[in-house]
Amino acid sequence: MTSDITLLVNPASGRGRGARAALPAARVLRAAGHSVRTVVGADEADVLRRAREAVAGGTGALIAVGGDGMVSLALQAVAETPTPLGVVAVGTGNDFARANGLPVRDPEAAARLIAGSLKGDGGAPRDLGRVAGGPYFGTVLASGFDSRVNDRGNRMRFPSGRLRHDLALLAELAALRPIPYRLRFDDGPERRIEATLVAVGNGGSYGGGMRICGDARMDDGLFDVTVVGACGRGELLRVFPRVYRGTHLSHPKVRVFRAARVSLAAADVTAYADGERVGALPLVAEMVPGAVRVLGVRGG
């Protein structure tokens, strides 16, 4: 494997943590004998273009420095290629890093693991999800109540930050209604289910540690699909805090299905994968086993 590797940097990630983290990470990797090239894109499209150019040019590894948004861009470039992925997680959520037991907000520790893995096992194989005709995703594809909160927050011009999300959440709670879904798992029959949300998990968490698909594994070739049934506002407010511990999975309104291919259809519902907008349902999510090698994963 070539010693030339590429750091893919989001300077805005975590209020500037991405740019600051690139320096100590690069220093550790250079000390381990690697030639490090840093790539900073002007916008998401430019970042993705540069990442794909690096992979096509034979870089020994693509290292995403930032949060889950930067990891998502990197995945589009390395998925189903021989190029391994490293993650220096310094964003807000960091769910992909957490799912793989990688350091969070410790760029030197992350870089040491990456360097050791490049010298040793070359990374551990991990599954990815893929939206048919669309992007790969590493953690969770979300639809329903949570995606409607995202939609509303994205439409709002003020306030900013966490307060915008909280106001969008309150507005969607006030408008809460069951969503009629049509779901199909693998080649099974179509199921018509009234639900609050449906989450398709390759990894276990989204939103910075909400364990919506808490038992999902990234190396078993199957999605865990969490279906939260029709809930009133009071019941949803009681159930939702349990998501951070994963104990919501035992609630009678929650069901979990396992499948390698999931078809979702519902009117006026948008899907988000790895926190990024994918588009309106209907869509099909397909498992791609072993689609990426992730550097630094302990235990392979």
Rank of each mutant, 00 (worst) to 15 (best):
T81D: 13
V36R: 02
A89N: 01
A77C: 15
L48M: 05
R105M: 06
V71M: 02
R50C: 10
A124Q: 05
P11G: 14
A99F: 10
P84F: 07
D68H: 14
G122V: 07
G66Y: 07
N94S: 13
V9L: 12
G93C: 14
G14N: 06
T6F: 06
I5A: 11
V88C: 07
D95C: 06
G101A: 08
L23S: 12
G58W: 07
V55I: 08
V39A: 02
L48E: 10
L7W: 10
G122A: 01
R37I: 08
A45F: 00
L23V: 15
R112M: 03
I63Y: 04
A110E: 08
H34T: 01
V9C: 11
D46K: 08
G58L: 03
V90R: 06
S35R: 15
I63P: 07
V71Q: 01
T92W: 04
A54D: 00
V28P: 01
A42G: 12
S117D: 10
A31V: 05
P84D: 05
N10E: 12
A99W: 12
G57K: 12
V47P: 00
G101L: 03
G33Y: 09
T83R: 12
A54S: 13
T92H: 09
E44L: 13
A97I: 08
F96S: 00
E44S: 14
V71G: 02
G58T: 04
Q76T: 11
T38N: 00
A74M: 13
V28K: 01
G120T: 06
D121L: 08
I114Y: 01
V90A: 05
L85R: 14
A45V: 03
V40Q: 03
D4Y: 09
G58V: 10
L62K: 14
D121G: 05
A51R: 11
G58Q: 06
G60S: 10
V55W: 07
A99Q: 09
T81N: 15
R27P: 00
L62F: 13
D4N: 15
R98P: 01
R98E: 03
D95P: 01
T92G: 11
L85N: 12
L23N: 04
G60C: 10
G60M: 09
A79T: 14
L23H: 11
A79N: 12
G14H: 08
E108Y: 08
G14V: 02
L8H: 04
V36H: 03
G16H: 11
D121K: 04
L23T: 15
R49N: 04
P82V: 13
D121M: 01
T92D: 04
D95H: 06
R37V: 15
D68K: 10
G69Y: 13
S72W: 11
G67E: 02
V65N: 06
N94H: 11
S117C: 10
K119I: 02
G120A: 15
T38G: 00
A26P: 07
G86S: 14
A31P: 04
A32S: 06
R30K: 12
P11H: 12
E80Y: 10
P107M: 03
G67Q: 11
R112Q: 09
I114M: 05
V36Q: 01
H34I: 04
V78G: 13
R37Q: 12
R17N: 13
R17V: 02
G67W: 01
V40Y: 01
R20H: 10
D106N: 14
